[in-house]
């Protein structure tokens, strides 16, 4: 089971990468209630207003990109990257992801980010792995947009 939290009226992490079929718990850590929903084709769902942990996780049983929002707080946005790939993950703040114990062979490597215009979301390259550690890098044409910021000030009410 994976978790996507809601902290300071924002989803955390902003992007959660999961394997197809993974249940995800949308835990609410805020003092205000949230109402998480998605109308993305791979998974449409609505979680009625709740505090704390929801009763049930949401199972993402089809690969694709799922955009999630909160019906009350329009500023909140998060993404689930649901994939059939056997190896996947999200990069750290340094932009690096490390895959371990991959057998030698030919691979297709894809990166995806919602912080670029949509036609630049997906980048693909082929890579051959031998016995040694191998590096691959993607050079983006432009800087990433900033991630949506949380609203820390509890006095703010204009949603």
């Amino acid at each position: 089971m994976a978790e996507m939290d809601q902290i300071d009226r924002q989803f955390s992490p902003y992007v959660l990468a999961i394997h197809t079929g993974t249940p995800v718990l949308f835990a609410n850590n805020d003092s205000v209630a949230h109402q998480v929903y998605s109308f993305s084709p791979p998974k449409r769902f609505e979680l009625a207003l709740y505090h704390g942990r929801p009763r049930e996780p949401v199972v993402f049983d089809r690969p694709g990109i799922v955009t999630v929002g909160c019906n009350i707080h329009d500023n909140m946005v998060g993404y689930l990257y649901v994939t059939d790939a056997p190896w996947f993950g999200t990069t750290g703040d340094d932009g690096v992801w490390t895959g371990r114990d991959l057998p030698a062979g030919e691979y297709e490597l894809q990166v995806w980010t919602p912080l670029l215009p949509p036609h630049e979301w997906l980048h693909t390259q082929s890579i051959a792995l031998g016995d040694q550690a191998t590096r691959a890098s993607f050079k983006l044409k432009r800087a990433l947009r900033p991630e949506p910021v949380p609203i820390k000030d509890k006095r703010v009410r204009d949603y």
């Binding site: 109308f39 993305s40 955009t67 929002g69 329009d74 946005v77 919602p114 215009p117 949509p118 979301w121 947009r145």
Partner: peptide
């Protein structure tokens, strides 16, 4: 009526 940007990859509504 709001056209949400996020599902279409826009960063504005």
């Amino acid at each position: 009526l709001t056209a949400l940007g996020a599902p279409a990859g826009r960063n504005f509504d």
